[in-house]
Amino acid sequence: MNFVAMVGRLFLGFLGTLGQIGTFTGTALSHCMTPPLYCGIIGRQMLNIGYFSLPVVGMTALFTGMVLALQIYIGSSRFDAEVAVATIVVIGITRELGPVLAGLMVAGRVSASMAAELGTMRVTEQIDALTTLSTNPFKYLVAPRLIAATVVLPLLVAVADTIGVFGGYIIGTEKLGFNSATYIKNTLDFMEPIDVISGLVKAAAFGFIIALMGCYHGYNSQGGAQGVGRATTNAVVSASVLILIANFIITELFFTR
């Protein structure tokens, strides 16, 4: 009986959390769509999320592209299909690895930072102070972060795609002996617009998830320094898991119908 009660409590708690996240998302979206928008804060957040994430996302994309080229070459040589390396690298990077790895790296960097910043503002009463100064915290803190992350992640992923494909090109031409012109021709000939577009749509969704989880956990943190730490961890974990789930759903929508 106790076990059943425990499962019931967990399930009700889960539903309660889903409801809270749903309400938070709805409120945040309504503030994203109604003026005034704090353009200065949106710009600063875009710089923080996009520009300052470039080194870590660029390095991740570069080495992923290089490893992908090596692995595909080794695998495809088993059935004499080495020529497919360039094609598979570009499809793999643009459709999946670019957006997902960039999303996960940014989730680790940005979700944590947002949760820590808003969590600290919560426990030091800065969010309450905003309200007493006739400023809606959703409008001032949450909406700019959501807009910035949703807009800037596709740009970041476009750069990551380019760097990743370039990583495959370096390995393909310098180590595996492909002709440079042939490699580029194979890359461009077999790449379709949908490959890139689906990746960028995923990136926008991942950006929204990253900001939403960072803001939700930070905004609702409680219990001092320990609470802020917990919010930070929860933001990164939930953003990462939701990115993987959203990746599956978007892939389903784009490619299996």
């Binding site: 503002m121 030091t124 009463e125 800065q126 309450d128 102070a129």
Partner: peptide, 8 residues
């Protein structure tokens, strides 16, 4: 506010 609650 008790702790000032100034915006960092």
């Amino acid at each position: 506010f008790q702790g000032g609650a100034l915006f960092d």
